[in-house]
Design a binder for these strands. Structure first.
Lengths: 230, 230
DNA sequence: ACCTGAACACCGTTCAAGT
DNA sequence: ACCTGAACACCGTTCAAGT
């Protein structure tokens, strides 16, 4: 997937990240090893240590790169519950738009989504995102403590919608994904309906999502509903 | 931490799990290696392969053991929104009680919490828990699809409350936990207040939680609030 | 049935050395 | 400044062999 230029050229930090991102998207996070990333540029693994302190720093940069793709709404003209609109009734439209913008890029990089929550505050893009979410929550009438906590919960929740989306299994590659799904299906299908009436009724929804857009719409609706005060 | 009996005795599957759980609780999930677990019983790493298919199966069993500790309320006398109380108004008290019961054991094993969401359906205890949560959500008037999805979101959210609890960093051990927290503090404290008014106002809440009980109460309140229909 | 020994194919990381 | 070579200390896992 990654291009292999001659080793004569110098290593470019951004290109390295782009290559690592491609590997993560295509084969999952486990495939992102220093040796593998280095091989994409015909370079030894130790070459990476000049550009990144260690593997953790590379993953931080990877998440930063992803979060930077987010196009926060209202950075242009202010609409809905903007960051500075303390006045007016809180409808949740502003928050909804922000969460949907985050989901757009998380869904494009499900493997990276899994390692984002702990890394949000380690990047400029993540900090800008948090500032925005907290602002929206403050505008909704939440105290500083409450707004801070809710921002953590909300961002964790949208990440979870991606990483826990039934049938997705963003962590593994195709082969073991099918194996894991098969085992899950076998287990759920073997449950006695009298002991597990609710789970047998909904078993299919844990194996695959009937409509992806419904999945994300309903999830965001739930989250926004919890924030809106009446 | 784990006792070291003479190698003369046979390996007991439950004891192995108890030892692994102790390691995870004390030093984090990274410390749980097959070599380390085996060393606790003066046995070679390969001995574990007779008791567990592979490391993933051991982790599954570990999560199962933890989830089995959950004491679901109303398994005795039915109170609140029990699993079979389709009648009566939904107050959310039943759901709240279940989530708090889950949080009680997750908080005791924060390192394991991180790997639970994907493994819930691989254990009897996790399946029983899901059945219960789905039932409560169905009783609240949700459709089968909605109930299934909300159960995933809710369980993921309570896990996130533990793993993302500011100042906790359940993943790492003490030494690097302090290092990571220090870096986070330095970054947040250096933010210009005019560009990040909301984040600078709440920076302290991202470094440590003022009151742990408040943290979990508020989180559960938020989740239950999203479920309750008016 | 239950465990060991030896080996394999990987990891991330350090450190001196090259250019 | 930027990268290599060689080595270290780990991983999970396989497989034949022991008792």
């Amino acid at each position: 997937v990654a291009p292999r230029p001659p080793a004569s050229e110098r290593l470019d930090r951004d290109q390295v990240l782009a290559g690592a991102l491609a590997i993560a998207d295509a084969e999952g996070l486990d495939a992102v090893t220093l040796r593998r990333v280095a091989a994409g540029w015909n370079v030894t693994p130790m070459a990476l240590y000049w550009h990144f302190k260690d593997k953790d720093a590379l993953l931080d940069a990877l998440v930063e790169r992803m979060l930077a793709e987010i196009e926060l709404p209202g950075d242009g003209p202010l609409t809905g519950d903007g960051p500075f609109s303390g006045d007016g009734p809180f409808t949740g439209d502003g928050l909804r738009a922000v969460l949907l913008a985050v989901l757009r890029v998380l869904r494009a990089h499900p493997a990276l989504a899994a390692i984002t929550p702990l890394r949000i505050m380690r990047s400029d893009a993540g900090i800008a995102l948090s500032e925005r979410v907290i602002g929206t929550l403050r505008a909704a009438g939440n105290s500083p403590v409450a707004a801070a906590q809710l921002s953590v919960i909300l961002l964790n929740a949208v990440v979870g919608m991606v990483t826990n989306q039934p049938g997705e299994l963003a962590v593994a590659d195709r082969a073991e994904r099918d194996a894991l799904l098969g085992a899950k299906r076998a287990r759920l299908k073997s449950l006695p309906p009298d002991a597990f009436p609710n789970l047998t009724e909904t078993a299919d929804y844990f194996l695959a999502v009937p409509d992806e857009e419904d999945w994300y719409e309903r999830g965001v609706d739930f989250l926004v509903r919890g924030v809106v005060r009446l």
